[in-house]
Design a protein around this nucleic acid. Structure first.
Length: 116
RNA sequence: UGGGCUGGCCGGGCGACCGCGUGGAGGCAACUCCCCGAGGAAGGUCCGGGCUCCACAGGGCAAGGUGGUGGGUAACACCCACCCGGGGUGACCCGCGGGACAGUGCCACAGAGAACAAACCGCCACCGGGCUCGCCCGGCGGUAAGGGUGAAACGGUGGUGUAAGAGACCACCAGCGACCGAGGUGACUCGGCCGGAUCGGUAAACCCCACCUGGAGCAAGAUCAAGAAGUCCCGUGCUUGCACGGGAUGCGCGUACGUUCGAGGGCGGCCCGCCCGAGUGCGCGGGUAGAUCGCUGGAGGGUGUCGGCAACGGCACUCGUAGAUGGAUGGUCGCCACGCUUCGGCGUACAGAACCCGGCCUACAGGCCAGUCCGUCCG
């Protein structure tokens, strides 16, 4: 689980990241990674889980699993990073391990693009 | 022991590790430790309240809601008891339970006929014809007893009566209405007596009657902080469209109406009336919602006792139980329970608080308990 300092909470940052960030998709998630030079202390992560994923119980479970998984990747992100993880409908039925694999694959790709 | 009916309850358990949020303690701080942390429906947002702000000058007309009676409650469209009607052998269940002589509308299909009833078959009299002398055919009438249709055909049984029949008349029954008596707080029930032959259903069609109803909602609302571009007005200065100072407004553009000949707003919607009044309505495009409080102790839960058929209420003792705001309440693993299984495993219903309560409605794998009815077996 992520602590509050690592959470993305304002709408403007969400828009910035999804419009300008590097994007990579998998079966269950789409990842947007942007960089905000004004805030460099710690990477921040936000999640978008729409109603297409399922009812509120399902959406909550997906969001919690993603938040938990994202925690393990914080150390590999720069302090200025703004990460938005969007869940796709397939995420509702995916297992924790599948979600983790998809997230890791996507993150590896966008990190490579940003640094390279 | 089988099948039902009613009411209530649970809705995975235990443990380990890693996390998240509120609160508390310690610490200069990083941080550490402790407590607590989703539901019976948290859901739909359909009713009723609390709370907050606004309004409170009335009258009329609309609009919406409720609809047997009595009680419960803060209140209700909820709950309890009872009454009436209907269903069931029974426990029990069901009814959107005011009015169809105030008026208007509608009544499909079938059927001859569906609302000031109706002659298709049948029955009967009369007239004419035929004739195997018992009827047959045609015409004109009478007839609602019988058949058939329908959800529904203008009471039922028996008699008098008649050509055949008919509430045409009579008795009883059913139903309707008036009165009287008894019981009940009441809806209503029971009994008596009289009356007139006794004109359907639908009000979840309009409608009529009685009663009830201010508006908006926690993004309510309060406090604090920050910020102020642009536009307009006034004054001063000069380089005549800029600077400075003061005031007003608080996104821009277009359009319409208006300032004592009153736009617009408030008094629930409209009209009258009253009050406030200088800007306001509409369209297009765009922007914003930081912190703290509100925020959880409340019509609160449990036990006992008393009153009450009950819903519920009184008293006493006792318990302490989420408070987020891109939104915590989780993730992984082990053992057990249950259900599938191709014996590898897989799954564990419906579903996630958002100001708080009381209800209603809807969803729900599986399981438990109590009462009660009918049947069967034994005694």
């Amino acid at each position: 689980m992520l602590s509050s300092a690592h959470r993305l909470t304002d709408g403007a940052s969400f828009r910035e990241a999804t419009r300008k960030g590097r994007r990579s998709g998998a079966r269950t998630v789409v990842v947007h990674l942007a960089s905000d030079p004004s805030l460099t202390e710690t990477p921040r992560v936000g999640f978008v889980v729409s109603k297409a994923v399922g009812n509120s119980v399902t959406r909550n479970r997906v969001k919690r699993r993603l938040r938990h998984l994202a925690r393990e990747h914080l150390s590999s992100l720069p302090g200025s990073a703004v990460l938005v993880v969007r869940a796709l409908p397939a995420a509702a039925t995916a297992s924790y391990a599948e979600l983790g694999a998809d997230l890791e694959r996507c993150l590896r790709r966008v990190r490579a693009e940003v640094s390279g």
